[in-house]
Amino acid sequence: MTSLVKSRLIKFLLSLIIVLIAVLIIIFNLRDNIIYFYGPTELLKNSDKQGQIMRLGGLVSVDSFQNETDSIFYFSITDGDNEIEVKYEGILPNLFAEDKGVVVEGVYMNDGRFIANKVLAKHDENYMPPEVIETLKKSGKWQGE
C-alpha cells in the first residue's frame, strides 16, 4: 500500500465515523416520528397522547367485533397484555378479521377509546397454501392464529 492510498484510507474512515455518529443522533431523535403506530400498552402508559391524532396497531381481539350498521363497527385491538376499544365508520379492507393484524388511524379519545377514520389490514410474514394450513391444523402443529 502506498502512503497516498494509506492516507486516503484513514481520511475515509474518519469521515465515515463522523457521518455514522451524525446519522445515529438523527435517528435516535426522530424515533417518535419514525414509529408508524403505537401498541395498546404504549398508548395506555402515555396518557398525554389522549386527544391526539395517531395510529394504533395490534391484533383484533377474538369475539370483540360488532357491527352496529353496515358501516359502523366496534372492535378491540390487543397486543396480548392490554386492549383498546375502537369505533370505526367506513369500509373495512378485505383481509380484516378477528385475531389478525390491523393498524387504525384516528383520534385517541380522553375516555380511553379510539375513534378510527381509517383501517389498514396488516399482513404477517407467513406465506402458506390453504392445504398446508389444513394439515397443520389437523395434526395440531399450527401455532399461528
Partner: peptide, 17 residues
C-alpha cells in the same frame, strides 16, 4: 420500528415462514 410492512419472511437465523 413498528411498520405496516411485515418483517422478513426469509432470514438466515430461522426457518423461512
Amino acid at each position: 420500528w413498528n411498520t405496516l410492512h411485515q418483517p422478513a419472511s426469509i432470514s438466515k437465523l430461522s426457518a423461512p415462514s
